[in-house]
Each structure stands twice: as C-alpha cells, then as structure tokens.
Amino acid sequence: MTDLAETPVSLPTTEVSLTINGEAVTRTVESRTLLIHFIRDHLDLTGTHWGCDTSNCGACVVWVDKKPVKSCTMLAAMAGGHEVRTVEDLEGADGLDPVQEGFMQCHGLQCGFCTPGMLMVGRALLDENPNPSEDEIREAISGNLCRCTGYENIIRSVRWAAEAGTSENGASQ
C-alpha cells in the first residue's frame, strides 16, 4: 500500500484544519486525500475502518457536524472547518458508551470490521430517537453491511443501549 503520509511536493496540496473528537488539528495533505485516509494515516486514528471504498459498506462512517457520513466518499479538504467525531470518542470519562456496552452484552460483533460504523450510526440514531423500534434500527443501519452476525444481534445491541440509557459519553443510567 502506498504510504499516503508521504506527500510528494509536486502534487496539489491543501491545508486542512478541522476538529477531530474535540481537538483542533491542521495538516497539509494532497488535495485528493479522502477523509478516511486523513483520519487513519495522518491522524493515526485507526478505529475507523476502511472497507469497500465505494460508499456501500459503512465501515468508514464517522460524524461530520453530528451527522453520520461515509468517510471514503468525502475529501479531507471538504471536512475542513467542520467537526469530525470518530469511534474513539464514544468512550467517555464514565466508561463505554451504552451502544458499545450493548454490543458487548448482546454479542453485536464477531470479526469487528463493521463495528465502528455500526456504533457511530447506532449512537446517531439514539441521539435523534432514544427509543427506536426494531424497524427503525434496521432502517438506520441499512447503509452498513455486516457479514458475521446476520444483523439480529446488532439490532439487539442497539435496543440494549436504548433501554440502558442514551445519554452521550457513556453516562449510563
């Protein structure tokens, strides 16, 4: 794999300043750098997974201004000036986010590849709708592929989080 952190000087670059998990960062990167590679290769935050590369699988979902987006289909430059949140930020001072706890309790993962995307979509759903039905959870994760669980345990995990408490930063009730 090409080391994207090494930027040849001849290619067009862009200075990208954004907030990631509450921290302001600035990096000068090739203009064509995708947000997923900016996060993983330039900021060394490897919790977000780089999956299908075609905006189908959802393993790369992060939040941009509190909305889940597929970071393989957004330029890092386009995220400049915005607030990005990744899976690393889910755990708060009081421990795991209820969604993370739910995935543990309900066996919401096997290989774990889809998990960061599922967690970020699950958290976003619960922030908007603290008590989602099974159908609403299925709809919310319909842009995220899992090849292990058959989805049933993921839906149970999100329901577990809804019942355990939905406050941000892991403040379980």
Binding site: M1, T2, L4, L11, P12, T14, E30, S31, R32, T33, L34, H37, D53, T54, L75, A77, G80
Partner: peptide, 12 residues
Amino acid sequence: MQVPAPFVYERA
C-alpha cells in the same frame, strides 16, 4: 485502493 487522480481543490 481507490484514490482520485490529482486535482486542484478550491472552496467557493
């Protein structure tokens, strides 16, 4: 790995 060909980025 799918990465676009190089281009100049501008923000309007």
